[in-house]
Write a protein that binds this DNA or RNA. Structure first.
Lengths: 127, 127
DNA sequence: AGAAATATGAGACTGGTTTCTCATTTATAA
DNA sequence: TTATAAATGAGAAACCAGTCTCATATTTCT
């Protein structure tokens, strides 16, 4: 069983109020808002337990450190801005992925990551 | 300028004769065939230099350690078998990836990784 | 062949992330 | 409210990929 604590609530709130996956460090910073002084070990422990309960998912994006997001966002993919390095959630998906593999392979899931320049960086705002 | 050495040739040969991306460790093991006692530092140094010359590409697959492959294989993606963890090169690509992002984002490249069960594992051969 | 540039192997080292330890605190159940 | 299980913070420790050092060896140029 797991107990509900101020720290764990703060961690979940941080994940939920942000629309992109966060690193443990970022989660700690966000959670400090609700729960000053929260430790990094606490963040790791809580993430581990949330993942075991399938409330949180690990998101691994090539070229970026591992990050986490709530599990209830449904199937989606990610966009990484090459300038500001921010990760954005994308909605929608593509068809025909199974046609890429030989017939005797079975495809169970997939990751798609797009890279480019986000709106803010593209307008010359800071790029 | 860079010199051609037994070690570097062994590394390139290993990358070329294997049809999937390899980790530095795997590269070292493969290169030992041609060049016994080759050091890991040598592998890293050579990879760095090959990447600078654009002869070799870094392939980062979520959930797997960084690996490398020759740069002349053209645009392709990867399949990871959840049973044997092998990485397979896939040929072909999909359309309409740009439609996933907002209009003011620009997409410059993408990674697609499929996960599932490969032919060998699926036949019950060892799965 | 001789000189200069580059590469090598071994192992120490680095930088960063994740886990562990342990004394203390907090949450839950009876 | 008491007992028990679980969680916490701080820092130490473990872990690991990748880099560096340095004495030596190899390659290339002339």
């Amino acid at each position: 069983m797991s107990y509900s604590t101020r720290q764990r609530e703060a961690i979940l709130n941080t994940l939920r109020r942000t629309d992109r996956p966060l690193t443990p460090q970022e989660i700690r910073e966000g959670a400090s808002r609700d729960c000053a002084g929260i430790g990094l070990a606490t963040v790791y422990r809580a993430l581990k337990s949330f993942m075991a309960q399938k409330d949180v998912l690990l998101v691994e994006i090539p070229g970026n450190p591992p990050c986490y997001e709530p599990a209830d966002r449904g199937h989606h993919h990610h966009f990484v801005c090459d300038r500001c390095r921010h990760v954005f959630d994308l909605h929608g998906c593509v068809q025909d992925l199974d046609t890429l593999v030989p017939r005797d392979f079975s495809v169970q899931r997939h990751d798609i990551t797009l890279y480019g320049v986000c709106a803010a960086c593209g307008t010359g705002a800071d790029g």
